[in-house]
Nucleic acid binder design. Sequence first.
DNA 1: CCCGATCGTTACGGGTCCGTATCATTATTG
DNA 2: CAATAATGATACGGACCCGTAACGATCGGG
Lengths: 117, 117
Amino acid sequence: MPLEIRPSQALRLWRQVHLDLVRDGQADLSARQTAILLTIYLELPPHTVRGLAQQLGVTKPVITRALDSMGKLGLVSRKRDDFDRRNVVIQRTVVGALAVEKLADLVTERARELGGT
Amino acid sequence: MPLEIRPSQALRLWRQVHLDLVRDGQADLSARQTAILLTIYLELPPHTVRGLAQQLGVTKPVITRALDSMGKLGLVSRKRDDFDRRNVVIQRTVVGALAVEKLADLVTERARELGGT
DNA sequence: CCCGATCGTTACGGGTCCGTATCATTATTG
DNA sequence: CAATAATGATACGGACCCGTAACGATCGGG
């Protein structure tokens, strides 16, 4: 069940959502942080620093720092894995779930407003 | 002719495109820069620093710096307005047009791959 | 038990971006 | 022609992020 969208529609959607994010001051998240956040909330747990680093094709410190800043915003939280205390399990939060849901609504709404071009 | 997309589809599309951008190292553009670039290439010229600042709801130095960095990447160029030499007209470039087109194809392709959920 | 491997974090030097305030240049108005 | 307004650029201090290289903590095999 593919989603049909024309290149010009894709661009207008992309622009409008980014405009909304910038105007709302909500743009605190970089592209990397966005990818990390959505991976945590869309993919099946458990999520680890190493796993995320591999999926994104970046180094581990990038993930650690992103989790630091997103943790400050309350978007995610971390917990030691009791079965292997070297691991850290990244957990979802209520705040993060709300932010993701809000983004979903934003994209959906802007897509609905797309005209025929 | 609205574009029908479910919130879960929107999120998966958003995640997948961001993943691609991060993995390609193409993520040099912040959310603000993306909004600026797409505004320049989608909206009718002429574009000025002040006009872009108003549209994005940011200060003028933000636009100036974004144009600096995007100019280094060849994505846009600047030219003095001969009719009002206080103004600077932002112009499109071949490199920028190609980058925008590439982004459009990426979003379109990832949308096409979206499954039913 | 000990040594190597693995995990996440931290340190460091460098780069980029931000917001505020200020500047030089040009246009407009009285 | 002088004074004011408007435009874009710049200076500055601070914050954030990057990549590489190290580090401490923990696990597992011999």
